[in-house]
């Protein structure tokens, strides 16, 4: 059958119709805009409205201490927040997957999901009321006699970490529970019968089996923290020095789009690099980690 015959043309037309929305979406909203961002980041202004190709925006990033520091700081805090999230979430996920039974298990799982259906803004607002100088924690400490003056818990790195860990929790708990659920209980029982203790069973049976969940959760949480804007700026205040805020300032406050594009590309690069490293080190694929 030749390609020109109607019978072959019909499925081909169907394929084109199906391909069109995806092509428009990915082309117009993702690939072209990101390519343009990359292009603009290499433009430097030589005179009003006159630009030429150059790397000065990237040089600026390395010369100006504050940019470089903010970038490094954002990366470090994101890594710490991701590890903390993992350490806090793992026992909970283990409890849900292996220790809780029946109704209890479902209820607990749904309880863990519920807060994350609520807007991040509302959750951060809750932390502000809890942590600020006139807030609930400070008042309670004074009332208990543990403090004689109001204490400001906001606007420092610890507050940013609390907010980031809180916001990320769901994206760690779900992959961990899924991974641990698929571990057959009899393997743990067999290890126990063969003389394993809690520590060695964890290290040799549970954690290796949960690795896909650990990697998936870690990658997603890291990406989300690195790109976070709300939690870090609201809980960190003026001292937050968060890289996405730096991008916002270049774009919206200073109207320096070339510099902002360079920053945006650097953030994208860092995010992709760490995701790629995480996948390489653990032998996973992105598709598997995200699903």
């Amino acid at each position: 059958m030749s390609a020109g015959s109607p019978a072959a043309a019909a499925p081909r037309l169907g394929l084109i119709l199906l391909l069109a929305p995806a092509a428009l979406w990915l082309g117009v909203l993702i690939l072209i805009p990101l390519s343009e961002m990359l292009y603009i980041s290499f433009q430097e202004r030589v005179a009003p409205r006159i630009y030429q190709f150059g790397v000065s925006n990237y040089l600026e990033f390395f010369i100006e201490q504050v940019y470089w520091n903010t970038f490094f700081r954002t990366a470090v805090i994101s890594i710490v927040a991701t590890l903390l999230t993992l350490v806090i979430a793992f026992p909970v996920a283990y409890y849900i997957a292996k220790l809780a039974r029946g109704r209890n298990k479902n209820l607990l799982f749904i309880l863990c999901l519920l807060p994350f259906w609520v807007s991040e803004l509302v959750r951060t607002f809750g932390w502000i009321i809890l942590l600020r100088e006139t807030g609930v924690v400070s008042r309670t400490l004074q009332w208990l006699g543990l403090a004689d003056a109001p204490i400001e818990f906001l606007y420092n790195d610890a507050a940013i970490l609390v907010g980031l860990v809180y916001t990320s929790m769901l994206f760690m708990v779900i992959p961990l529970v899924t991974a641990l659920d698929s571990l057959n209980d009899s393997l743990i029982e067999a290890a126990y019968d063969l003389g394993g203790n809690a520590f060695s069973i964890m290290r040799e049976i549970v954690i290796p089996h949960a690795m896909p969940g650990i990697v998936g959760g870690t990658i997603v949480v890291f990406m989300l923290t690195l790109g976070n804007y709300l939690t870090s700026t609201l809980l960190g205040g003026k001292n937050s020095l968060w890289f996405t805020e730096q991008i916002y300032n270049q774009f919206i406050t200073r109207f320096n789009w070339e510099q902002g594009s360079a920053f945006g590309f650097l953030l994208l690069l860092l995010s992709s690099l760490i995701v790629w490293l995480g996948l390489k080190l653990s032998g996973q694929t992105l598709a598997k980690s995200l699903s």
Binding site: P33, L226, G227
Partner: peptide, 13 residues
Amino acid sequence: VVPGVILGISILL
């Protein structure tokens, strides 16, 4: 995988 802020600025550009 792309941070939301970057999707926003690239579409703005």
